[in-house]
C-alpha cells in the first residue's frame, strides 16, 4: 500500500517534470541549423532522395554502426544465455491449424519480398535496412508460429550476420581511403537522384544492414523459440 503510494508520488513528480517540458515546448517555425543543412545539401552531396536515410546511413553513420552492434550484441548474448547445445529437449510435433499452414506458405514469400524491397529502396522511399530487416523477421516469426519445430541453421545465420557486419566495417574504412572520411557514401558514383542505382554506397550499406538485422532478429526468435518445452 505504502509502496503504491510512493510509486504514485514518484510518477506524479516525474510527470510534473514532463509537464514543464510539454508546456514550455513551442514547435519551430523554420528548420533549425542542422535540419536546414540536411534539407539543402543532401540531394546534391549524397544523391539520396530520402533525407532520413542519408542521415542514418552517412551523416550519422557512426550511430548506425553502433546500433547494428547493439543488435549483434543482443543476439549474441541471447544465444549465449539460451544456448541449449546438445541438451535440446525432445519435442513432439504439435498440430497447427490448416489456415495458418496454408496462409504461411502463401504469405511468407510475399513478406520476404516486401522486406527486400523496403531495404533496397531505402534511399528513395520511406523505409530502409532496419524496417526491411524487421519485416523479414516477421516473416520468420510467421514460419515459426506455423511450424514450431522448424530448425534454423544457426551457423548460416551467424555467417550472414558476421559477414554483413565485416563488409559494413570495410565499406566504412573504404570511405577513409576512397572518399572524404569514414562511412562516406561517395566511394561509389552518386548517379541521378531518384534512380535505384544512386546515392553511392547507401543502397549497398542498407542492404547489408537489412540482411544483418533480419538475421539477428531471426537468431533471437529462434533462440527464444527453442526454449519452449512442448
Amino acid at each position: 500500500m505504502i509502496k503504491r503510494f510512493i510509486a504514485l508520488a514518484l510518477v506524479v513528480a516525474v510527470g510534473s517534470v514532463f509537464a514543464t517540458l510539454l508546456f514550455g515546448y513551442t514547435p519551430d517555425a523554420d528548420l533549425n541549423l542542422t535540419a536546414r543543412y540536411y534539407a539543402e545539401r543532401t540531394a546534391a552531396d549524397l544523391g539520396a532522395a530520402n533525407i532520413v536515410t542519408a542521415i542514418v546511413v552517412t551523416y550519422r553513420g557512426l550511430d548506425t554502426l553502433g546500433e547494428v552492434t547493439v543488435l549483434f550484441l543482443s543476439a549474441s548474448i541471447v544465444g549465449l544465455v539460451l544456448a541449449k547445445g546438445t541438451h535440446a529437449p525432445h519435442r513432439t510435433p504439435v498440430p497447427v491449424g490448416e489456415l495458418l499452414t496454408t496462409g504461411t506458405r502463401f504469405l511468407v514469400p510475399l513478406i520476404l519480398l516486401l522486406g527486400v524491397y523496403v531495404f533496397v529502396n531505402g534511399h528513395l522511399t520511406p523505409g530502409g535496412g532496419f524496417q526491411g530487416g524487421a519485416i523479414i523477421a516477421s516473416g520468420i516469426l510467421l514460419l515459426l508460429l506455423a511450424d514450431p519445430l522448424k530448425h534454423f541453421s544457426h551457423s548460416l545465420i551467424s555467417a550472414i550476420e558476421s559477414l554483413a557486419g565485416i563488409f559494413y566495417v570495410m565499406i566504412g574504412l573504404a570511405g577513409l581511403f576512397l572518399a572524404g572520411g569514414f562511412l562516406d557514401n561517395r566511394i561509389l558514383p552518386l548517379g541521378t537522384l531518384g534512380n535505384l542505382a544512386s546515392a553511392g554506397a547507401i543502397p549497398l550499406i542498407y542492404s547489408l544492414i537489412g540482411l544483418k538485422v533480419g538475421a539477428e532478429f531471426a537468431s533471437i526468435l529462434a533462440a527464444l523459440s527453442e526454449t519452449e518445452e512442448l
Binding site: 572518399a179 572524404g180 572520411g181 569514414f182
Partner: peptide
C-alpha cells in the same frame, strides 16, 4: 578532430 562521412560537424559526428 576526426570527421566522419566527409562532412564537418555538427552535420556529421
Amino acid at each position: 578532430d576526426i570527421f566522419t562521412a566527409g562532412t564537418q560537424p555538427p552535420f556529421a559526428i
